Simulated assay, not measured.
Amino acid sequence: MGAVRRIALALTIIGALNWGLIAFFQYDLVASLFGGQDAFLSRVIYALVAIGGLICLGILFKPDEDREVAPDRQRFTNPNLNTEFGEEPDFKKEKERKD
C-alpha cells in the first residue's frame, strides 16, 4: 500500500471516529479543535477526509495482493482409496501371477 493510500486511510479513520463522536455524544471534535464547523481550517479537514474516503474507494474494489493462488493441481474425480466400502485387492491372485 502506497503512502498516499495510507494517508487516505488514516484520514478516513479520523472521519469515522469524528462521526462516531457526533452520533454517540453529539460532540464534533474537528469543529471544537479548529473553531467551529464554519471555520476555514475545519472545512479543510472535512475536505481532506472526504478526499481520503474517495481514495479509499479504490482500496475497496482492489483485489487482495496477499492472497495466495493455489497452483494448478491434478484433480482426481474418483480416486480408489481402497476403503472399507471399496473393493479389496486379492493378493493371492497377484502372487500366483508373479510365480
Rank of each mutant, 00 (worst) to 15 (best):
residue 88 E to P: 08
residue 19 W to V: 03
residue 24 F to Q: 04
residue 60 L to P: 04
residue 33 L to A: 15
residue 67 R to Y: 04
residue 83 T to R: 03
residue 96 E to D: 10
residue 3 A to I: 02
residue 42 S to C: 10
residue 15 G to V: 01
residue 8 A to Y: 04
residue 90 D to C: 02
residue 35 G to T: 02
residue 67 R to F: 08
residue 8 A to W: 01
residue 35 G to A: 05
residue 55 I to T: 08
residue 54 L to M: 12
residue 78 N to Y: 07
residue 91 F to A: 07
residue 73 R to I: 13
residue 15 G to N: 03
residue 18 N to Q: 03
residue 51 I to F: 13
residue 44 V to Y: 10
residue 92 K to N: 11
residue 2 G to F: 00
residue 9 L to S: 13
residue 37 Q to S: 13
residue 45 I to Y: 02
residue 86 G to P: 02
residue 19 W to P: 05
residue 44 V to C: 06
residue 28 D to Q: 00
residue 12 T to S: 15
residue 4 V to M: 08
residue 85 F to Y: 11
residue 39 A to K: 00
residue 14 I to A: 14
residue 54 L to A: 12
residue 89 P to Y: 12
residue 27 Y to Q: 09
residue 59 I to A: 03
residue 84 E to W: 10
residue 86 G to R: 11
residue 60 L to E: 12
residue 58 G to P: 05
residue 57 L to K: 02
residue 58 G to N: 11
residue 50 A to Y: 03
residue 5 R to L: 11
residue 76 F to S: 15
residue 63 P to I: 03
residue 82 N to A: 04
residue 54 L to G: 10
residue 82 N to I: 11
residue 50 A to S: 07
residue 9 L to I: 04
residue 17 L to H: 10
residue 45 I to Q: 00
residue 40 F to G: 06
residue 48 L to W: 01
residue 41 L to M: 14
residue 53 G to N: 11
residue 96 E to N: 12
residue 36 G to R: 01
residue 2 G to M: 01
residue 73 R to N: 14
residue 34 F to S: 13
residue 8 A to F: 04
residue 45 I to W: 09
residue 66 D to E: 13
residue 74 Q to E: 14
residue 13 I to M: 00
residue 9 L to P: 01
residue 70 A to P: 07
residue 66 D to R: 14
residue 86 G to M: 12
residue 42 S to W: 01
residue 85 F to R: 06
residue 62 K to S: 12
residue 66 D to Q: 14
residue 10 A to S: 11
residue 37 Q to V: 01
residue 62 K to G: 06
residue 10 A to Y: 01
residue 53 G to L: 08
residue 4 V to S: 09
residue 37 Q to L: 03
residue 29 L to K: 01
residue 43 R to S: 10
residue 70 A to Q: 09
residue 24 F to A: 06
residue 14 I to C: 05
residue 92 K to V: 11
residue 13 I to H: 13
residue 40 F to Q: 07
residue 65 E to S: 14
residue 60 L to V: 14
residue 6 R to H: 07
residue 57 L to S: 11
residue 18 N to P: 06
residue 31 A to P: 11
residue 56 C to S: 08
residue 59 I to Y: 04
residue 77 T to A: 12
residue 45 I to L: 15
residue 78 N to L: 12
residue 24 F to D: 05
residue 98 K to I: 12
residue 27 Y to I: 09
residue 67 R to S: 07
residue 81 L to A: 11
residue 99 D to R: 15
residue 7 I to K: 10
residue 43 R to E: 03
residue 14 I to H: 02
residue 93 K to Q: 07
residue 44 V to S: 06
residue 92 K to W: 05
residue 82 N to P: 02
residue 80 N to Y: 15
residue 13 I to D: 15
residue 2 G to L: 07
residue 25 F to R: 07
residue 65 E to Y: 00
residue 75 R to W: 07
residue 10 A to H: 04
residue 60 L to Q: 09
residue 68 E to S: 06
residue 74 Q to I: 15
residue 24 F to E: 04
residue 11 L to S: 01
